[in-house]
């Protein structure tokens, strides 16, 4: 009997450890990013690092200012949201409320496919289709630009926005809509003035997820944005926080390498803020449902 109790305790312990692996991983990532990211910030100076406008890591007198990357990431994400959210939102309302079941099923599969396409494939198609397209359409010397990255990112965040919004819209109680229809509202008015407000925390979650995905994307953006550390401008070659890390990691050393870790730390802080916002909206949704 005693042996059996011991065995149970050991197994309980093993499962506890397995459960704690996720917590350990988060700690590992946080600690590693802080330890490897702080030295460069200390050496360069926080203000200089965050607000410096020039990044010249390989110059004889290197400069490590990441303001261009921060702004590019913010503008790029904002642009992708402005383009992607309306399209995703209206698609989601149609699919959730108006589409015949067959259309809904097929479109949901199509959206899942969009979510599953590897980011390098988006980058490749962007490189071959969008970059020359932008060059010719706007008559600029190089199409690899912030605009190109924004379009690719907008497409890449579409699936998360559509999927999460549909889930939220599907969960709106039918009684709300029936009541609105009975009061004389047209179906369209009901969908947009009753169902959408009722699902607003879910839709907000969808947007925040989109922000997270856009700000964290590296490979597709690297292939279409040109990668020059310019201050952001729609038709200029730009570098994001993610691509700044990826493009120099291969050959960096010394302070330059440490500065790349610091960039990753800044990106991580952004992601944590987005996660905070996400939790806020998720909690808001739960309280609304009570």
């Amino acid at each position: 009997m005693k042996n059996r109790q011991l065995l149970e305790n050991i197994i309980h312990g093993i499962f506890f450890v397995l459960g704690m692996v996720t917590v350990g991983s988060v700690l590992l990532i946080t600690v590693y990013l802080i330890i490897s990211g702080l030295p460069a910030i200390k050496e360069i100076g926080l203000k200089e690092f965050l607000l410096g406008k020039t990044w010249a890591s390989t110059a004889s007198e290197p400069k490590y200012g990441i303001l261009p990357f921060i702004l590019t990431s913010i503008y790029g994400t904002a642009g992708a949201i402005v383009l992607g959210v309306p399209i995703g939102f209206f698609t989601a309302v149609y699919l959730s409320k108006m589409a015949p079941p067959k259309v809904k099923a097929v479109m949901q599969e199509a959206v899942s496919l969009l979510a599953g396409i590897p980011s390098v494939v988006y980058g490749l198609v962007g490189m071959i289709v969008l970059v020359p397209g932008i060059r010719e359409l706007f008559n600029v010397p190089d199409g690899a630009s912030l605009l190109c990255a924004i379009i690719v990112l907008a497409i890449m965040i579409l699936p998360s926005i559509i999927k999460v919004s549909i889930t939220a819209l599907d969960a709106v109680p039918k009684e709300y809509e029936d009541a609105s229809l009975a009061l004389g509202a047209t179906p369209i008015e009901t969908y947009f003035r009753v169902s959408v407000p009722a699902a607003k925390s879910g839709i907000a979650t969808a947007v925040v997820l989109g922000v997270g995905r856009a700000i964290g994307e590296a490979m597709a953006v690297m292939m279409v944005s040109g990668n020059a550390p310019n201050m952001p401008s729609l038709f200029q070659s730009v570098r994001f926080l993610t691509t700044a890390v990826a493009s120099e990691m291969g050959y960096s050393s010394g302070l330059q390498r440490q500065a790349l870790f610091s960039i990753a730390l800044v990106l991580f802080v952004f992601i944590l803020m987005i996660n905070g916002a996400l939790n806020f909206f998720l909690k808001g949704g739960k309280e609304n449902n009570k």
Binding site: H12, F15, F16, G19, M20, T22, V23, S25, V26, L28, I29, Y32, L33, G212, I215, G216, E217, A218, T242, V245, A246, M249, L260, F261, A264, L267, F268, I271, L272, I274, N275, L278, N279
Partner: peptide, 29 residues
Amino acid sequence: YASNKKVVELIEYAAETLSGIPSIIYGLV
């Protein structure tokens, strides 16, 4: 197993955080 609500919340929060971290950061760490 878990009977402590705080531990469950901690693990679930950690999992949520993990799924939000961009792959480039995973690559770096």
